[in-house]
Design a protein around this nucleic acid. Structure first.
Lengths: 236, 236
DNA sequence: CGAAACCTTGACAATGTTCAATCACTGTGG
DNA sequence: CCACAGTGATTGAACATTGTCAAGGTTTCG
């Protein structure tokens, strides 16, 4: 892959040319159609994955065979950092593209080596990781405090900010079932909760597009019980 | 505070003498009785807090005035890293001792300065943060997959490993209400779920002590739906 | 002893899950 | 072009889990 892509990524900001070139040399950039296994469980354990465009589902399977959606990544997000500095890691997942995607991968070993030699990269990754951690903290709070309709509303609020250009109507980038899983509920529950939310907050959904006219109203419905209020609760 | 305490802390492993002395100089070590406000919301925003012994509750308040328990720290755990590198952070919490505690604090500004100059400290903190992140990922999974009784069982399994010396009977270090909040449920739900768990898995509780005879049995009851199984699911 | 904090219990309401059935949409082959 | 299978979304009914509110019990500690 070419080093100029790396230069624009905040994670690699201010890295030395030598380091950038080394990453570029061993990093692999590629594209996938929707529905591909981007990383198998085995590959995932030795791979850092960065999403350039598109959407990727990270998931694992429980003992009794059910799929657990761990995260959904989109542009400028990444996974695989857990495997850094580990001999053995108890986190296992697969990565699957849920839209056409453009990504690149870096061997964990390489990243680890560069981290050990580059103070700058360590600081960059630390900063990113701390932000990710805050996001996870919020997610824990939401799961124990919000009901299904509120979690969906909270998700919509977050998407609203990502699509700053068109704040009132935007494309839902993946299926409702996947979103349901991501928000920790069954598709049926999602369906019903979404209807309830639509009625309460004047949201419409048609052909994959969400129309949101009154953000204030959603905020009132969603953020009552939280320790944070939109737009402080952003975590994309 | 004296530098020799710092030397035994993994977060500060292999730091230069200069750095250790600087931390020791500006760090403050102190003890608190049970029930003290260790950090006010305001102080928390500029303070790194490390727990030497005892138990500390981190919590915030929701808009509608309810307490949200964000985490419970014990020996060798810390909080405040979120505030590193931030102009503004939307995470607010207070720290309260729920047992007699022994702690020390370091100004965030100082820690940030040392992080910028010490590659070693950056790597140490990065490593710790990645582990914390994995723990949080598990917590998210548990909240969406396990029911109340299973979450309690999962907690007990975790405590079992901490108390390796006496795996069958151990002290529950804080009240059931707090634990309920930590596990994302109401005290009433906790009470009922705990009774159910006790019956199913042969656990008894008396005078603050838990007696666990059959860890296998708890594991069977708890870990069915998870992507991990005891003892891989340890996150203390 | 008596107050306060904490835990438990019961009755009931709210919320979420399960399972089965139906509907809408899509792409395929005849 | 239509029939048809396959996928994903929705709906209904029964059920399970959790939350709420009120009351009563226990423990702790001044």
């Amino acid at each position: 892959m070419s080093p100029h892509i790396l230069r624009d990524i905040s994670l690699f900001a201010n890295l030395s040319e030598v380091n950038l070139e080394e990453i570029a040399k061993f990093g692999k950039q590629f594209s996938c159609k929707k529905g591909c296994v981007v990383l198998s469980t085995q590959r995932a354990e030795e791979t850092f994955l960065y999403v350039i465009t598109g959407w990727i589902k990270l998931f694992s399977e429980s003992i009794d065979g059910e799929e657990i959606v761990m995260d959904i990544l989109t542009k400028r997000q990444y996974c695989g950092e857990h495997y850094l500095f580990r001999k053995r890691c108890d986190m296992h997942y697969m990565a699957e593209s849920i839209s056409d995607v453009d990504v690149f991968t870096i061997p964990i070993q390489l990243l680890e080596r560069i981290l050990r030699s580059s103070h700058q990269l360590s600081l960059n990754l630390l900063q990113n990781t701390l932000e990710k951690q805050e996001r996870l903290n919020m997610e824990v709070e939401h799961l124990s405090i919000q009901n299904a309709a509120q979690r969906i509303g909270c998700f919509i609020l977050r998407v609203c900010v990502v699509n700053k250009g068109h704040p009132t109507t935007f494309f839902l980038p993946y299926g409702k079932s996947i979103l349901a899983a991501r928000l920790g509920m069954r598709p049926e529950t999602f369906s019903r909760a979404f209807i309830k939310l639509s009625r309460e907050c004047d949201i419409t959904f048609k052909d994959g597009f969400l129309q949101v006219d009154d953000i204030e109203r959603i905020t009132r419905y969603v953020c009552q019980h939280c320790s944070k209020v939109y737009p402080s609760c952003q975590y994309f």
